[in-house]
Amino acid sequence: MKEICIVEFPSNLGLKEPQPGKEPGVKKLPEWLWRHNLHKEINPKDVLTLDAPKYTNIKDPETQILNANSLVEYAREQAYLINNLLSQNKFPFIIGGDCSILLGTAIALKQKGNYGLFYLDGHTDFMDISLSETGGVGGMAASIVTGNGHPKLTDILNLSPYIKEENLWCVGNREYDEQYENEIQNSEAKYLSLKELRKQGISNCAEVFLSEIKNKNLDGFFLHIDVDVLNDEIMPCVDSRTPDGLSYAEFNELASYLFQSEKLTGLEITILDPDLDLTGQYTKDFVVNITSTFDKSRNNF
């Protein structure tokens, strides 16, 4: 059984300002989840924190991406930390931050071998910079880690692609804009929108994914959880709200299949913004659901 290590990446570098002069509040998420007992329930062997570089709302002229140089610097530091944990056969339970925190972990996974990525998100995050109005890596993270985009971000340490496109499963999107969906549909990634996930069935989807990891003889897979995959009524405290989404029953069912797999190498939780959940009620519900589902499965690590 792998030792679980909570890793805190309190970064908001991949998001635009919610309003002029105000930083995105998602960098407060690790402390916020600690206050709402996630750390207590997970009961990790260690808790490690890596502070992010200073946030700016300025686009890099070379890439047109927000905080590009800081993201590269941070990703290298993240990768070093995660690589060490994986070398010790530990399980990184990562708390963001926005979705750009994936870059460092993806680099570490590439350094270790050939891994799959289950990207559970209310958006594909598989977007070219040409379609981005904000220049935020949070909306492009899945695309960047599979080698699409400017080499400053896609080829850090000459490791592009960090995750092979064919080993990405993008699940749960409900942004049904044709131009937006075309990006992922025209890739080699497996794409299951929320509609398609429900149509095919959660257990079937998980079974096919886990079979593919086994049949491809991958070294493992990493689970990305953007909380905006949840229904907007139960998780409205996110930066990009969209109607519908998974119920907790659906989320817990899918998560439990993935948590139980011995091929699960680590996971990350992103996007819940404490500034948007002033009473903490939505956060409390989330912590209860994810920790109870995780704890029931952890004996399989």
Rank of each mutant, 00 (worst) to 15 (best):
A106L: 06
F91A: 12
P151H: 06
I107Y: 07
N83D: 15
G135C: 01
D98K: 00
W169N: 14
G97R: 05
A68C: 07
N89R: 14
I101W: 07
T105C: 09
S160T: 09
Q64H: 06
A142W: 01
F126G: 06
A68L: 00
L81W: 09
I82Y: 13
D125Q: 10
G104T: 04
M127A: 07
L120P: 09
C99E: 03
E133F: 07
D60Q: 01
V72M: 06
L81D: 06
N173Q: 13
L81C: 11
I144S: 05
N84I: 07
N89D: 15
G139N: 05
I156M: 05
W169K: 15
N67D: 01
G122D: 10
L157W: 02
T124G: 12
T134L: 06
C170E: 11
S70G: 08
E73P: 00
L66A: 02
E178Y: 09
Y162K: 10
L86H: 08
K59L: 00
Y74R: 02
L85H: 11
I144W: 04
G136R: 01
N83K: 15
M127E: 08
N69C: 03
I107R: 08
D155G: 04
G135T: 00
G104P: 04
T134W: 02
K110M: 04
N69T: 05
D125P: 08
V137D: 00
Q179K: 14
G97T: 05
N167R: 14
N57R: 03
I82C: 11
N173P: 12
T134Q: 07
F126L: 05
G136T: 03
K152N: 01
L102N: 09
E62Y: 01
L102G: 09
L81M: 14
N173K: 11
I58C: 01
S130T: 10
A108P: 05
I58W: 00
D125F: 07
I156G: 04
Y80G: 10
L109V: 03
S160Q: 07
T134A: 09
L71F: 03
I163A: 10
L168D: 12
Y115C: 10
N67C: 00
C170D: 14
T146V: 11
Y80S: 14
R174N: 13
D128I: 08
G122E: 12
T154V: 00
